[in-house]
Simulated assay, not measured.
Amino acid sequence: MKKLTVCLLIVLLSCSALFAGGSEEKQTKEKEVVIGVFEPQTGENGGGGYQEVLGMRYANKVYPTVTINGETYKVRLVEADNKSDKTEAVTAAQSLISSGASVILGSYGSGVSIAAGDIFADNMVPAIGASCTNPQVTQGNDYYFRVCFLDPFQGTVMANYAWQEGAKKAAIITQLGDDYSSGLGNFFSKAYTALGGQVVSEQRFQTNTTDFKSILTNIKAADPEVIFAPSSIATAPLIIKQARELGITAKIMAGDTWENSSIIENAGASAEGVVLSTFFDGADPATAEAASFIKGFVPYLVENKQPEIIPAVSALGYDAYIVALKAIEKANSTEGKAIRDALTGVKVEGVTGDIVFDANGDAAKNMAFIKVVENGQFKFLKTVSVK
């Protein structure tokens, strides 16, 4: 009988220890906050989207935790591929909401950002765009912010550059149905004509077009001195190569999307002399955060089998992430509405400069970098400010 009693006591003590251990494990389980990554990793803008994602992943590696009410929370990234498509963007946005994301980063591509905007607002989850430059992304949406400059500014910068270089006639090529392309082309046109320049040809093409010789032939007949062609990474080398094959010697220019090494690889020698505007130059770090980022991100690019050239959108992706952390800490909450309210007052020293938001949720930036393709590389030319 005594042996039976002892055995029962041992079993009861073991069970007690097991349940106590389980309870303790539950109590000490690491807390976490989810940040959604809303980016194209496939489709027409998959290359640029992936570069932006790398910046966010690296930021998460550098800053893996955030403090909320004195407690440390692990930051977990949940990624959703919007596939460079407006319909898929809605599905991707909904999946991130379902994942419990407190704040969402992205997207590369203004069209998909605009398409998902109402979903974020309706669910009161703030989004922070990295490189989506079309004004409509944040207009009328209290839950969308962004860390980049806007297309009216970028279009003006490139128009000023063309005019200052002595170009009196310009042609414009834009993609139908693409908010970024059509918007930036329009802003360039307005700024250029206001300076006194003449737009001698405006050509538009459908998505998935691969043969541009017809519209380029029309442009050649108009004899412009510059061609402004804001378009996707996929179409850029086709436009560049086919223009040179037709004997067009005009300077070819574009916006930030063209700062991608794959364009040089695919266009080859035809890419020489192409000029573009962008957000960041790794050779001239503007802040202490930028210097630290450059030192650590280059090896990270190598780890991910990428060229050792820091894409501007990677820097913006990094900045979007650290802005999100700052807002979470300021809000002392994982609730979307509280984070959104905190975003209106954050100030962050980012890789691409100091970041504060205006009433529209746009970063107050007034400087762009102009680069040219020279000897198969993007070479810094100058910085341009517009007041």
Rank of each mutant, 00 (worst) to 15 (best):
A101T: 02
A89Q: 09
C132R: 12
P299S: 13
D118Y: 03
T235N: 15
A59G: 09
V33D: 03
M124D: 13
S107L: 00
T209W: 04
V53F: 10
Q242Y: 11
G247A: 06
R340D: 01
V313A: 08
A338G: 10
V103Q: 09
K83Y: 01
C7Y: 06
E225C: 02
D122M: 08
G106T: 04
V372Y: 02
Q242D: 15
Q27W: 00
E39I: 10
G296T: 07
Q175V: 02
K251M: 11
F153R: 12
A229Y: 05
K26E: 13
D341F: 03
C148R: 07
Q51P: 02
V90A: 13
G47E: 13
T209M: 08
A363W: 05
N266M: 09
T235P: 00
I370E: 15
F153T: 08
G196D: 13
L4S: 09
L246H: 00
I239D: 03
P285S: 05
S277Q: 12
I309Y: 11
E272I: 04
K326P: 00
Q164W: 00
V147T: 13
L343I: 02
L276I: 14
A167I: 04
L216G: 06
D85H: 02
A267L: 03
G48F: 02
T28S: 12
T65I: 02
T210A: 10
E24D: 07
Q206L: 09
I215Q: 11
V351I: 07
D341H: 05
A324E: 06
V34T: 12
D341S: 10
G273E: 06
Q198I: 08
T383E: 15
N82M: 03
V112T: 15
F228E: 13
A338F: 04
F38S: 12
